[in-house]
């Protein structure tokens, strides 16, 4: 049995770990609520741009644009959003496992794919496995502004326009609720899922100067907004996931401390009993 002092030391160290995880839990909780606010602030923009894109794409068959067309896929880019730090449960590992599996399944040679990595965890993962990383961004703030990510998104969309990549698939953690996040993959480019809604409320727009030129400006912006939306979603998931992980770490620490305290008390009691037995034994020997 461990000595009294050993147990005491373990209790103390567990207590300290618990303090840290508890603090991280609370920090993540407040960051989560902020991240949710940010995601909400982005909604009007994304809704509106989607509406305009859909109405233009749905208005006539003559609207053609390279970004809308599926071409033969010679190179696929994976846009992978991870966190910069760990300690967030399965947040990073879940997504990286999914991406890695997809790549293994779909591609034979290295020329067929590349990765665009957001977040240090993802970047390091792919580098270690010798997977080509086209672009990367790390050290994003917890509440990213559109300006922080703009360069990356516009460069990514440009890669597609320049036909360096023929397909863009995005992997991120979708925020379902504070306790559940789901690894999601979406094909972002070419834009194929524009619904041609035929509802009567759709307004027929005049285009100034013309439809083609509007598409030239609007579609890249739309794609960028999709990426930004996924990033905000992923940030919310990250905080939620870290919050849950830290919560369960705190709970585990509590449980461990309980067990150890019980052990400590038993050991102390055993020591006392032994002392008494020794004294009684000693007194009996004298008689």
């Amino acid at each position: 049995m461990a000595s009294l002092r050993d147990i005491k030391t373990r209790i103390n160290s567990t207590q300290k770990t618990k303090q840290i995880t508890k603090a991280m839990h609370m920090v993540s909780a407040s960051k989560l609520s902020k991240a949710e606010e940010f995601a909400k602030a982005f909604d009007p923009y994304s809704d509106k741009i989607k509406e305009v894109v859909n109405s233009i794409a749905g208005s006539g068959q003559d609207a053609e644009h390279p970004m809308l067309q599926t071409r033969e896929v010679k190179k696929t880019a994976y846009f992978v959003i991870t966190a910069d730090r760990g300690l967030a449960g399965a947040f990073n590992s879940g997504i990286l496992r999914e991406v890695y599996r997809t790549i293994q399944e779909k591609h034979q040679s290295k020329d067929e794919y590349a990765v665009i990595a957001v977040g240090r965890m993802g970047r390091d993962f792919f580098r270690k496995r010798d997977i080509p990383v086209l672009k990367e961004i790390t050290g994003l703030s917890d509440q990213p502004n559109f300006a922080d990510i703009k360069d990356l998104t516009s460069e990514t969309v440009q890669l597609f326009i320049d036909e360096e990549i023929d397909e863009l698939v995005i992997f991120y953690n979708h925020f379902v609720s504070a306790i559940s996040q789901k690894v999601t993959s979406k094909k972002l480019l070419p834009l194929t899922d524009l619904q041609e809604e035929s509802s009567g409320t759709k307004s027929a727009y005049e285009y100034e100067p013309n439809q083609q030129e509007i598409l030239d400006v609007l579609l890249p912006q739309y794609a960028e907004s999709l990426i930004f939306g996924a990033l905000l979603d992923s940030k919310a998931s990250e905080h939620a996931s870290r919050m849950t992980a830290m919560k369960s770490a705190t709970d585990n620490a509590d449980e461990l401390i309980d067990d150890l305290s019980l052990q400590y008390n038993r050991a102390r009691q055993a020591a006392i009993t032994q002392e008494i037995t020794e004294i009684v034994g000693g007194a009996a020997a004298l008689e």
């Binding site: 940010f38 602030a41 923009y45 502004n145 907004s225």
Partner: peptide
């Protein structure tokens, strides 16, 4: 008139 950006209205 409403002006919206990705960072909010």
């Amino acid at each position: 008139v409403s002006v919206v950006t990705p960072d909010g209205p």
